[in-house]
Computed example of a mutant assay.
Amino acid sequence: MSNRDWTQPSEDALVTYRAEGGVAVITLQDPPANAYSYAMFRQLDDAILRARFDPEVHVLVLTGAGEKMFCAGANIEMLKSVDPYFKYNFCLHANETLNRLEQTSKLVIAALNGHCVGGGLEIAMAADLRIAKAGGGKIGLPEVALGVLPGTGGTQRLSRLVGKSKAIEWMIEGLSFTFEQARDEGLVNKLIEATDAASFLAGVIDYARRFVPPARASKAVGGIKRAVQSGLEMSFESGLALERELQQQLFQSEDAKEGFQAFLEKRPPAFRGR
């Protein structure tokens, strides 16, 4: 295949999108491995923007199709057949897409229904939380075995999640862990016991709805996410300035007024996400 073949829009739905009850579910769909191509990332980018612009969506849940694989990373057939110019721009676009996911001021949960390796883990690390199906698979960055490094943000995000020395060790050894081990290492936030992928996803969505109005002030959740995701990349003083600006925006929100009033009236607040 030529570079041009891989840049053509796909007629297949490689990413599906559905939104209900304040939660948008975005599914990587190219079984059996759900490996991503440029076309898949174009569709993922569109789905992220769709959720970002929808005022009725408060939480994004990102998962993979099927029972065995969240995502196995980049499509190796594509990488083998395209030239370095294409590969560079492919990685650049992937970085931009995951940055957009990370910077969207809505909570993002990666629902790991199956193995999450290579670029799949790089996608999951751009989420705010990672919830995995108990006993559902392995997680790791094995790119060194291919003679390359994790090139979709893996070197940067893993080191920020688990620390510099540990991240280097895991990547140079190409280590993989069970979801249970990954939770113990702080790479996975929660495990959900489930008999299949459908019941697992239902459990993740139930958890996601804890952060949807009227139960939770989703603008405050988004502000916390932005303060942490963006603030940690700044100096301490700049991070404090960002925190103040986000707090000022929240002070002017309907939800903050409701929260303070409900506290004074000793009743549960009824947030609206505004």
Rank of each mutant, 00 (worst) to 15 (best):
N113V: 14
D45H: 10
F200T: 12
D184E: 15
F236W: 14
D83T: 04
E193F: 11
I192A: 01
N75F: 00
F90Q: 08
L187H: 02
I139T: 10
L101W: 03
L92Q: 15
S2K: 08
L191I: 03
L121M: 02
K133R: 15
V15G: 05
C91L: 14
G163M: 05
I139P: 05
V15C: 07
G135L: 02
A220G: 02
R18D: 15
N189K: 05
S230C: 13
R157C: 09
L246Y: 02
L187M: 14
E56F: 05
E265P: 00
A74N: 03
K68I: 08
F263E: 11
Y38H: 14
K133Q: 12
E245Q: 11
S105H: 10
L232K: 13
P268F: 08
N89P: 03
H58T: 08
A13W: 04
I48W: 11
C91Y: 14
D12M: 08
D54P: 08
A24Y: 01
D12K: 13
L112E: 11
E67I: 03
Y88I: 15
K266Y: 11
G259D: 05
M78K: 06
Q8A: 13
I26F: 07
Q8N: 08
A198I: 13
G114V: 03
Q252R: 14
W170R: 08
D5Q: 11
G73C: 00
A74I: 02
V228A: 14
E258Y: 04
V204H: 07
F53K: 14
